[in-house]
Computed example of a mutant assay.
Amino acid sequence: MRNIDEITQSRRLRRTRRTEWSRRLVQENALSVNDLIWPFFVCEGSNVASPIAAMPGVHRYSVDMAVRQAEKAAKLGIPAIAPFPNEPAHIKTQDGSYIANPDNLINSVTRAIKKEIPEIGIITDAALDPFTTDGHDGILRDGIILNDESVEMVVRGALAQAEAGADIIAPSDMMDGRIGAIRDALDANGFQHLPIMSYATKFASAFYGPYREAIGTAGVLKGDKKTYYLDPANTDEAMREAEQDVLEGADMLMIKPGMPYLDIIQRIKSQFALPTFAYQVSGEYAMIKAAGQNGWIDEEKVMMESLLAFKRAGCDGILTYFALEVAEKLKNA
């Protein structure tokens, strides 16, 4: 019988890596089209596809063009999409009340897509930032974000989105108590079937810059969002935030941003065992795109590796601006 030293010396971990087929056979995680959620941006007008400078390859679409893009996503097998509005300045107010208007861009595009492509899921965000004059996710008064008043407005927005046909409500505002309040309101108004995907841990990150350009808040944001977004240094606080959302009735949990917070993804998935998602945010996308365009990295390989990392960390799905591109690649693989 061989002793432990002899066994160790004969162990060759490279054996299973020797061929392409054996590497596939022992691969622990895999990415599929079922893991993809495509976020995109909606603007006013018709027949509009306006490029976003800070996000190469990403556009703002008018409602009619967004419907055609959603159709493309559905044909590629992408399960769900997540529209975000670039609302005109004249509708914005201090309290963001236009979020509750049934004819705002989010609700308009939701109705239009559901009418023509009912099979694709639509995930809507009930945060106030596209609708406030100061670019905050809550109501700002005298330099303070008012939590409870903000929650009331977020709830009104969530109900309007549910009535327009949203399939999942995903509030990103990070106000205390908003998950429970939305759950109660949905249940009381006949939307008991609608799940809530909580932005459970949304960090005060520097990775959101291109997104703010895309929705038109980059130049108007007053101050920062550190009083309600999470400190990037804190992991235990992130777990408390996620736990509170679970207790209030969240059906799914999201971590935002994605790649810099893989440790948070893994902890949340391990502790709560709920469907867990990450948002590969605009700054992550823009860095990969810019480096790829400059020839510093292989863009396609880095794109795929980054998404596989989310799966390895425990994600059940990823919101990514690469979704259409990745779906095409997987289809042709």
Rank of each mutant, 00 (worst) to 15 (best):
T124F: 11
I117L: 10
T19K: 03
D5V: 02
C43Y: 00
A89K: 09
Q94H: 15
I7S: 09
V58A: 13
S62Y: 00
L25S: 06
D64G: 07
F40T: 07
L76N: 05
I113Q: 08
E71M: 11
L31G: 10
L128W: 04
D103V: 06
P118Q: 13
H90M: 06
S22Y: 00
G57H: 07
I117Q: 08
A80M: 12
I122P: 15
S10Q: 04
D5S: 11
P39G: 08
A70Y: 00
R17F: 01
M65K: 02
A127K: 02
G138T: 14
D5Q: 07
G77E: 05
V48Q: 13
A66V: 07
A66M: 01
P102N: 08
E71Q: 12
I91N: 10
V109M: 01
R17M: 09
D95G: 15
P88N: 12
I123F: 10
Q69W: 01
A30E: 03
T132Q: 14
I122Q: 06
I113M: 09
R12F: 00
V67D: 02
A80N: 13
V48S: 14
F41N: 09
S50R: 11
Q9V: 03
R11I: 05
H90G: 12
R12V: 03
R68P: 15
I123K: 04
A82N: 10
G121D: 05
R24N: 06
K92D: 15
P56H: 09
V58M: 13
E20N: 04
T16D: 11
G57N: 13
R14F: 02
D103L: 11
D134H: 14
I78M: 11
L31H: 06
H59W: 08
R24P: 02
K115M: 09
D35L: 03
C43H: 01
N34H: 08
P56S: 12
R24C: 01
A49E: 14
P56M: 09
Y98Q: 10
L128G: 14
R15F: 02
Q94D: 15
P79S: 13
I113R: 04
R24E: 05
S32L: 01
L31S: 08
A100F: 03
G138I: 12
P83R: 04
F131P: 15
R12S: 09
Y61H: 09
V33P: 15
D64R: 00
I113F: 03
L128S: 10
Q69G: 10
R23E: 07
G77S: 05
A66Y: 00
F84H: 10
I122G: 13
H59S: 15
N101T: 06
E28H: 03
W21S: 13
L76R: 05
S32W: 00
A127G: 12
A66E: 01
L31R: 02
R11K: 08
P79C: 13
R23M: 06
T16K: 04
P79T: 07
I122L: 10
I120F: 12
R68Q: 11
K75T: 13
I122S: 10
S97F: 02
G135F: 03
G45V: 01
P83C: 07
L31V: 04
K114M: 11
L36A: 10
V26N: 05
N86D: 11
T110W: 03
Q69R: 08
R111G: 14
I123M: 09
S97D: 14
A73M: 05
G96R: 03
S97P: 15
F40S: 12
S10E: 05
D103T: 07
V109P: 14
A73C: 11
P56D: 12
I123W: 09
